[in-house]
Lab assay of single mutants.
Amino acid sequence: MTYKLILNGKTLKGETTTEAVDAATAEKIFKQYANDNGVDGEWTYDDATKTFTVTE
């Protein structure tokens, strides 16, 4: 399945997608991606749209 991440960081904003077997796997990938890019904030997930959002 395709999952989407919306980044609302102070210095980085944008979107990315990943292919993952489930939401938990996608979350791990996205949290590593956000960490690698210096984004740390409040996480939400919308199962209907398979979208994670992180807001600093």
Rank of each mutant, 00 (worst) to 15 (best):
G9T: 14
A24I: 09
L12F: 15
T44A: 13
T25Y: 08
Y45V: 02
E19W: 13
D40W: 14
T2Y: 12
K31E: 04
F30R: 00
T53K: 06
K31F: 07
K4E: 03
E19T: 14
D47R: 08
N35Y: 15
I6H: 05
W43Y: 02
Y45D: 00
Y3N: 00
N37T: 08
E15R: 07
T51Y: 03
A26F: 01
T55N: 09
G41Q: 02
D36W: 07
K50P: 00
V39M: 11
A20T: 06
G14M: 15
K4Q: 05
E27N: 06
A24S: 11
A24F: 10
K31G: 03
T53P: 00
D36S: 10
K4G: 04
K28Y: 11
T55R: 06
F30G: 00
V21P: 11
T2L: 14
T18L: 09
K10M: 13
A48G: 10
E27R: 10
L7K: 01
A48R: 07
T44I: 09
A34V: 08
I29A: 07
A26Y: 00
E56D: 12
V39G: 03
T18W: 05
L12D: 05
G9K: 04
T44Q: 10
A24G: 08
G9F: 14
A23H: 11
E42F: 13
Y3G: 00
A48I: 11
T2V: 13
E27D: 05
T53E: 05
G38R: 06
Q32D: 07
Y33A: 03
E42N: 11
V21I: 13
G14T: 14
T16L: 14
D40R: 14
T44K: 09
G38Y: 07
D40G: 09
K28S: 09
G41K: 02
Y3V: 01
K50Q: 11
L5N: 00
G38N: 11
E42S: 10
D46Q: 05
A26W: 01
K28P: 03
E42Y: 13
K13L: 07
A48D: 12
K31W: 08
E42I: 15
T53Q: 06
K10D: 07
A20P: 02
K31I: 08
K50S: 06
K13Q: 11
F52K: 00
T2G: 05
G38L: 06
T16G: 05
A34D: 00
T55Q: 06
D22G: 04
W43I: 03
T11Q: 10
T16M: 15
T53S: 07
L12S: 07
N35K: 15
D46L: 04
K28V: 10
A24E: 13
A34G: 04
T55M: 07
G14S: 14
T16I: 14
T2M: 12
T44N: 08
D40Y: 15
Q32I: 12
